[in-house]
């Protein structure tokens, strides 16, 4: 590559990153505005943390709900997804491509449609059995597992297909039980794929609006939906402060995961197909 071309490319890259990161920087700056104004002021007027102290407690509750549902979805999708991928790749099924396509299907369903589907499903279920899933943790969790399962199945299948079965054969022939073979040989090898899938399961669940929107209510809501309604109907600058805190939380989570699992996981997370 010629030097001029490389600099041209680098300029494009810098511009793209500026676009990607600017919203977060701007949010953080305006959240520190000290003015009395009840609207967004950018650049901030004076510096103050008053909007941080004014974050209503209800947001903290919906934040906790979002984290809990994200973690639960990642765990549930992780368990179901790893088992499913093992079944698909190693089972004696003929139409493996069809099975994979079936598990990928939720990715093709527009999210807003999934939301409507679950809303109606829960209505019918309530009418038939009296089980109330609308505005419940379980109801939200089921819907979120549904939209996040494809990510785990996809990444784990990809890793398993490249897996060298001779590693397991060696362990098993030397006397390890099947469970030990799985725990000590298979699992460590597929772990990056599992973590990548679970990370995406968490991301998809944690940030979701179009599905949750139909399933939450005043008694139980998630942070993105809470923020969405605040922006639509009763904006106040403490939302900027809260958003900044969530951005900081997200960055710290990513850094922590990176420290724990290595860079590889993050790259793989994007390469889900």
């Amino acid at each position: 590559m010629t030097t001029r071309r490389r600099w041209g490319l680098a300029a494009v890259v810098v511009a793209i990153y500026a676009f990607l990161l600017a919203p977060f920087v701007v949010l953080a700056l305006s959240s520190l505005s000290g003015g009395e104004a009840y609207y967004i002021s950018f650049p901030p007027r004076g510096l103050s943390t008053r909007w941080y102290l004014a974050i209503p407690a209800s947001y903290l509750r919906s934040f906790a709900v979002s984290v809990a549902i994200g973690v639960a979805s990642a765990l549930a999708a992780g368990l179901l997804g790893v088992a499913a991928a093992l079944g698909i790749v190693r089972g004696r099924y003929r139409r493996k491509e069809l099975l994979k396509a079936f598990f990928r299907a939720p990715l093709q369903i527009p999210l807003v449609v999934s939301g409507v589907v679950f809303l109606q499903f829960y209505y019918v279920l309530f009418g038939l059995t009296g089980v109330r899933l609308l505005e419940s943790f379980t109801g939200l969790l089921l819907a979120h597992v549904f939209i996040s399962l494809p990510f785990v199945v996809g990444t784990v299948c990809a890793v398993l297909e490249k897996f060298d079965r001779r590693l397991e054969e060696a362990a098993y022939s030397l006397g390890a039980s099947r469970w030990t073979t799985f725990r000590r040989v298979t699992l460590p090898v597929i772990r990056p794929g599992v973590f990548a899938g679970m990370l995406y399961a968490f991301i998809v669940s944690f940030g979701n609006v179009p599905v949750s929107l139909f399933l939450v209510g005043p008694r139980l809501t998630t942070l993105p939906v809470d923020l969405f309604y605040s922006m639509e109907y009763d904006f106040n600058p403490s939302i900027l402060a809260l958003s900044t805190l969530v951005v900081v939380f997200s960055v710290l989570t990513i850094l922590l995961l990176q420290r724990l699992m290595g860079m590889d996981v993050l790259v793989r997370a994007g390469a889900k197909e």
Partner: peptide, 25 residues
């Protein structure tokens, strides 16, 4: 690795917060 991490961070943050930032910008 920083560039990749930033992409992951950006995909991690909920679209509501992204939209709020874009509204300010």
């Amino acid at each position: 690795s920083l560039l990749v991490t930033l992409l992951v961070v950006s995909s991690f943050i909920t679209v509501v917060i992204k939209s709020l930032g874009l509204i300010v910008i």
